[in-house]
Structures are given as structure tokens and as C-alpha cells.
Design a protein around this nucleic acid. Structure first.
Lengths: 143, 143
DNA sequence: CAAATTACTTCGTGCCACGAACAATCACAA
DNA sequence: TTGTGATTGTTCGTGGCACGAAGTAATTTG
């Protein structure tokens, strides 16, 4: 049983590691963690508040403030949905797009360094298993 | 290059997944994420503020409040360090110990379910690689 | 058309994290 | 011994994050 316990510990520590990297790279781009996550989702195009809160696993009331602050910083805009006057579409401004691309690139580099030391075969196997485990996690960080 | 990009995405998504689980299990034990992390570190015995802030990657000033709130909830106590009158040792109360053990057990179960569907060989390989990647991450979630 | 549903916001609360500034204590060297 | 510089931890101010309850407006449904 030693091994399964180790798996849980390993997952937690890996998550901690990645999360710290995420925050660190975010700070370098002047983005909070929550903002960076949101901008990553918006990379795929404009999204309504409800769907966005679903993808980020946030209550809608939490999202309102997040979008507010991002909008004040000029990273994001709210647009009226032509088909539903209740709804709002959130999308990236050019500044937001620039920021998120820089963030994405830097984080990708840092994360690749993490696995860079592994032998190629091990690395590929690891990645494949990873893909399998996260198959139904929303795409927060597109390829 | 398709594969290396996927590795970064996979890591981010896995981290998101684990982090959400962490928060969810925490809520079930009436612990915030930050509190749960701290209590996990304290499982190994009492620790000074400076070392604790290092292990949690937090500024000392952030830790003060975290310990304050945990102390008010009766999860933790501050004790004077006999060898250094500036220093403080933080340790678990019985209530804190109970809470963190429950948290640890539930989270471990949930995390094992994550990998439970994998073929045994793949799972073992994955775990081994995991251990290697997190070798120098502080122990936030002991075996 | 009335009622139920959906989309989003507002408000109040508590928690989290940072940096600057500060007091107490310690370690060490002159 | 007496500075002097480093270390330990706290306070304070600021800003951000997240929740839930309650509310408004628009849409859908019966």
C-alpha cells in the first residue's frame, strides 16, 4: 500500500508546485492567479458569465467582481449578447490578449523545464497518462 | 512539438483538478485551503513561524493572520520557544489534529480514485515519475 | 398572460496575501 | 561589555478573492 499513498502525496505536491509557478508567472505579467485563469479561458473566444463561472468553478457572484476588476484594468470587455438582452459576453481586449499570450508562453516554458530532465520515453508515458487523467477537466490552458 | 505543449496543458489541468479537490475536501472538514495546508505541515510536529512561512511559500506577515484565525478556531496553538524568546512554535491542538487527519484521509481517498482506473503498470510508472518530479517540493502532504 | 426560470448584479462577510514599518531579541565582534 | 547588524514575529493598510442571500430584468413555458 505504500505506493498508492505515495501517489496522493505526489499529486498534492505536484499541484502545489504548478500552482506556485502559475502564481509566479502571473505576477510577472501583472496578473493575479484568478485573472490569469479567466484570461486563459477567454482565449477561445467570448463567453457568457454563466458559462465562464462554470468553467472556472466559481459562483456567479464571485465572477462579477473578477470581471469588474479585469475590465477596470483594460484586460477584458463586457458586450451585450444580441440574442439575449439579459446576457453578457466577456471577451479579451487587445491588451488582455497580449498579456495572456505572454503568460501562456512563459508558463509553458517553465512547465516544460520541469519535465525536461526526464528520459524521453518516461516523459512521453507520463504525458500520456496525464492526458488521460485530465480528460474531462475543462480546458483552462489550451494547447 | 505537439507533445511537449500538451504536457504543460496537462500539468495545469491536473493542478486545477487537485486544487479543487483540496478545496472541496477542506470545506467538508470546515477548513479553508490555506488552513488545511498549514495543518498538514504541522502534522510533523511544532514549527516556528519563519520555517512555516518557508514551507508554505508565504510571507511572514501573511502567516500571522493565518495562525491567528486558526488559533481562534482552536486548531492550533502558539507556544514560546524556550531557546529563543523572540521565537514562537506553532503546533496542533487535539482538535486540529483530528481535523487534519480526517482531511488527509478523505483527500487521499479521493485522489486515489483519480488514478484507480489506470492499469496497474501504468499507474505505478506514473507514480514513480511523479515522485521524481516533486522530489524537492516541501512535504505538504506526508505519506 | 402569469408563473417559473435564467442571467447577471449588489451587498455583506470573512479570508488571504503582500509590503512597509516596527519592537524585541539574539549573535558576534571590537 | 557594548555596539551593530541580523533575525523573529507583529501590526497596519491595501487590494483581491469567494461565498451566499437577495434583488432586477428578460426570457421561456404552460
Amino acid at each position: 500500500m505504500r505506493e498508492t499513498i505515495g501517489a496522493a502525496s505526489g499529486l498534492v505536491r505536484l499541484a502545489f508546485l504548478v500552482q506556485n509557478l502559475y502564481a509566479e508567472v502571473g505576477r510577472g505579467c501583472d496578473l493575479t492567479e484568478a485573472q490569469a485563469r479567466m484570461l486563459c479561458v477567454l482565449t477561445n473566444g467570448s463567453v457568457g458569465m454563466a458559462e465562464l463561472s462554470g468553467q472556472l468553478c466559481l459562483e456567479r457572484s464571485s465572477l462579477t467582481g473578477l470581471v469588474d476588476r479585469a475590465e477596470q484594468r483594460g484586460l477584458v470587455v463586457r458586450e451585450a449578447d444580441p440574442h439575449d438582452r439579459r446576457a453578457v459576453k466577456v471577451s479579451l481586449t487587445p491588451a488582455g490578449s497580449t498579456a495572456v499570450h505572454r503568460f501562456h508562453q512563459e508558463l509553458t516554458e517553465r512547465l516544460e523545464k520541469l519535465t525536461a530532465e526526464l528520459p524521453v520515453a518516461e516523459r512521453e508515458r507520463f504525458t500520456r497518462t496525464l492526458q488521460r487523467l485530465v480528460a474531462d477537466v475543462p480546458v483552462l490552458f489550451a494547447d
